[in-house]
């Protein structure tokens, strides 16, 4: 749906919620993603607003702006933006209380539960802890974070829990799987657009999105990507990503990755390469190779 916005002048989709003025919820979301949606909303700078395009507003949202799925959202978004800037519409308050998401649950002198001044999960936030780097065994800080499910560079809905040392992934786990295949014919182009953005080619990505929204074949897209070095920039160990990008730009089927397990392949990869690999799979393959992880022991209890 959001691809239709690529053509709209004056509307740009941002990579960080801090750079946006309006949160546009396009299409249906899972019940389990509600808390992530609320957290995302509360990071928007004021004055802010939310528009629900073909999506059901959260029940406790006051005066929601809703747009029917078949309608063009651009005029409404423009009006909303103007009203916000002029102060004709009040900025939205936080949806979540301004307090840590979890109880303190600390132990030790400083309550953080790790060793010395490091590690542990104070207030439910994992802190950095020393660990062996998987390539050379050096002791480095490892940090566990969760990205997604609404990170623009990841397939929609996918949320990954990553243990990072610097920009190298030590361990990965699927927290929530990607949304299932929508079956639209332009999906390969949208996927190609995501890869092109990861390669620092926003204009070409926009061109791919426009082509997807129009539903026409942009013959020059592959040649344009080649000229800008999009395929050349991918090193030999990302040859599979290169093949899938090439296929996606031609709207063709990508070579089957076989019995691959996504999270196993991500271990040891650097950040940009890892995101490129994740972004290159089509939704059907992704649901096969990146299903939701089995809850770890004790996790259900924690969640409860």
């Amino acid at each position: 749906m959001a691809a239709r916005l690529a053509r709209a002048p004056g509307i740009s989709l941002q990579h960080s919620i801090r750079h946006a003025a309006i949160l546009l919820v396009a299409g249906r979301y899972r019940d389990t993603d509600r808390s992530a949606l609320c957290r995302l909303h509360d990071q928007l700078p004021q004055p802010r607003a939310t528009a629900w395009w073909g999506a059901a507003p959260l029940t406790d949202v006051h005066d929601p702006v809703t747009i029917a799925e078949g309608d063009d959202p651009v005029p409404q978004l423009r009006r909303l933006d103007r009203d916000l800037l002029r102060g004709a519409r009040a900025s939205e308050p936080d949806w979540l209380p301004d307090e840590p998401p979890n109880a303190w649950r600390g132990k030790g002198d400083h309550g953080q539960g790790g060793k010395g001044m490091m590690g542990g999960v104070p207030y439910g936030r994992p802190m950095a802890m020393m660990g062996e780097e998987m390539r050379d065994g050096l002791m480095l800080d490892a940090m566990t974070v969760t990205i997604g499910p609404f990170l623009r560079t990841l397939p929609p809905g996918l949320s990954l829990e990553l243990t990072l040392q610097g920009d190298v992934i030590q361990q990965a786990r699927v927290a929530t799987p990607a949304y299932s295949a929508s079956g639209i014919a332009s999906e390969p182009l949208l996927r190609a657009a995501r890869i092109l953005e990861l390669l620092g080619l926003p204009d070409l990505a926009r061109r791919a999105r426009i082509s997807a929204a129009r539903g026409d074949d942009d013959e020059g897209l592959v040649a344009a990507a080649r000229r800008r070095g999009a395929l050349l920039a991918l090193p030999a160990d990302l040859a599979d990503v290169r093949a899938r990008l090439d296929a996606a730009l031609r709207r063709g089927a990508a070579p089957d990755p076989g019995e691959e397990c996504l999270v196993d392949r991500l271990a040891g990869m650097e950040w940009q390469s890892a995101l490129l690999r994740v972004a290159s799979f089509d939704p059907a393959t992704l649901s096969r190779i990146a299903p939701a992880a089995e809850p770890e022991e004790g996790e259900e209890e924690k969640a409860a």
Partner: peptide
């Protein structure tokens, strides 16, 4: 091609949190 600080793959990198 040389933007390794504020790149889109890091959602704006060093500027990801600024508004």
């Amino acid at each position: 091609p040389m933007d390794y600080g504020d790149a889109a793959d890091l959602s704006g990198g060093t500027a990801a949190e600024v508004s």
